[in-house]
Design a protein around this nucleic acid. Structure first.
Lengths: 332, 332
DNA sequence: CTGAAAGCGCTTACAG
DNA sequence: CTGAAAGCGCTTACAG
């Protein structure tokens, strides 16, 4: 095929391949005339350096892998986009490893290593020990998102779930709620369990406790069944704090279906602040998890680790912030 | 670092690097004993072939690039996921090129070519001529999604928008609607304009014409402003067919806000059938655009073209199907 | 079936 | 600043 290589350009420009390489390498030395001749030849031939060959010999591939699960929610999609965007600003490209289920994270990471990714971002499940050790040996940073794992070479970046839950709990209690329930995805979801713990702790500080905690089937119906059970109980909760916005929206729908007024009969708070939660028919009070900030923090951390491979592992909490809308009572 | 290469394995197994290579190449000849010794050595050392080196010398990189715009909607996110999934089943990996605006498609494609992607899927805007010619010369298939471009080497895969619109129009008219309006993203969105044309044609066949066509600002508010104008007009439409589900949901919200009953006062139909449209508070009648089928068709076409590079370009229409829910009148 | 050799497209010390 | 040489990790004809 019409593959133009560095040799073609060198020949056309009457210089060595080293000279061509230097012209295409930032900060390498080349005279103005060499530069001009090489650029002219390259342009005329339509030459572009082969990133793979470059990667094979160079230090970096400029490839960053993202390991994610399938059946992701809006939040994950937005994160993927924000990450791709933030990486692009650093000249890095996003390689996607879509894995099916927790156990496949390993496979996704190995595939990333096969392509010599400069770093791997894991946003699905946790990281097997053998794999993180392999990354460490290879000098490939791992950024684990949405979960804490205290391990050498693994940086964790996630929202301040407990503090978000605290803000939610305090708003509810100040609004007069006393029978507060929690509805989440259950213990498999790390963030959710932190949110539940945060709620519990905050309530305890106020002399209260959750009146119920329930789990939705994430693959199912946003928890319509669980929400129905919760809201039909003889001693109905006067507030439901949810692990995610999607679940909270399901609760809103259920409340509507049961003829309950929100927030008068039951207040609802979500988590994430996905775009939909702001829609007029929902106006969900929720805890904002700043996606762009998270993505940028991930990318900054990658650069830092690439520059300084032996940095100690960190756990970075991204601040969360309550956004009061129409599903909680107004506080004067 | 602890990078294990083919040479390390060869040494440990007491064979040549060629032998190791063959053991790791499907369908290459190696004796059972060689195979066993190489596998044992590889396992002991934790060896995995470098995909980049492999790609540099081999025919394929097993990298497929997806060029997408930012600020995508739910539909695009689901497509990305479905594509990654379908590619994985063929041992191919997804490289994301997120571009900002139409003009950047070129840049995204070039970056894909730099990494020697086996194929590039474009789901944002159209393809510059120079770039498609370059791909053709390089033998890299281009699959353009959601748009038709009659050009050598460019396969187009998109929903049957006109037929979907026809089904929608017929349902509305059979339900008694006569004053049907169209609300879409305007001429910049290729699919939308096909949907509008399809509506117009179908209505014409029934002796009708759209009473209004309006455009929403996609970056703005799902068209609340446009929907409000439409539904507040002196001669209000009795149905609104929308370019996307998101817009249709905006119309539903607007109708609610204006105190209009759906479908009695105004019927609403969307397009795409995103998960949200099935939610209890919306129950949107819409035209299903089968995402998984689309993704699989894309991937199949990639394989076909890779096997047979000189295939003539095609335009493949994915069938669309009306899903009647609660925002249109029941037809007996 | 097997190994030595050449080469994929590039970069990086090394002399000059 | 510049070019010749070596090498990145692999595969693929080519002899044997």
């Amino acid at each position: 095929m019409g593959r133009i290589t560095i040799r073609d350009v060198a020949k056309a420009a009457g210089v060595s391949t080293s000279a061509v390489s230097r012209v295409f390498t930032d900060g390498a030395s080349a005279s103005a005339t060499t530069r001009a001749r090489v650029n002219a030849a390259a342009k005329a031939l339509g030459y572009r350096p082969n990133a793979l060959a470059r990667a094979l010999v160079g230090e970096r591939t400029n490839l960053v892998a993202l390991v994610i699960g399938q059946a992701r929610n809006v939040f994950d999609s937005l994160f993927l986009e924000a990450l791709a965007d933030a990486l692009a600003r650093h000249g890095q490209n996003l390689l996607i490893s879509l894995v099916h289920g927790e156990s496949a994270v390993d496979e996704g990471m190995m595939s990333a290593l096969d392509y010599q990714a400069d770093a791997v971002v894991v946003a699905a499940g946790t990281v097997p020990l053998a794999t993180s050790e392999r990354c460490l040996r290879l000098g490939v940073p791992i950024i684990l998102c949405g979960r804490v794992l205290e391990r050498e070479g693994v940086d964790c970046i996630l929202g301040d779930n407990r503090d978000g839950a605290r803000q939610a709990a305090e708003l509810l209690v100040r609004g007069g709620c006393r029978r507060i329930a929690y509805l989440g995805r259950g213990p498999t979801a790390y963030s959710d369990s932190e949110r539940e713990d945060g709620l519990r702790d905050a309530l305890a500080r106020l002399g209260l406790a959750p009146v119920a905690t329930a789990t939705v089937d994430p693959d199912n119906d946003h928890g319509f069944a669980a929400a129905t059970a919760l809201l039909s109980a003889p001693l109905r909760p006067d507030a439901v704090f949810c692990g995610t916005d999607l679940i909270a929206l399901g609760v809103l729908e259920t409340a509507r279906a049961l003829g309950l007024r929100v927030p008068e009969d039951v207040a609802v708070i979500g988590f994430d602040n996905v775009p939909m939660s702001a829609w007029p028919s929902f106006r969900l009070t929720t805890v904002d998890y700043p996606i762009a900030t998270t993505a940028e923090t991930v990318v900054e951390r990658i650069q830092a680790r690439l520059a300084e491979p032996n940095l100690p592992a960190i756990v970075r909490r991204i601040p969360t912030r309550l956004v009061a809308r129409a599903t909680t009572r107004r506080i004067s």
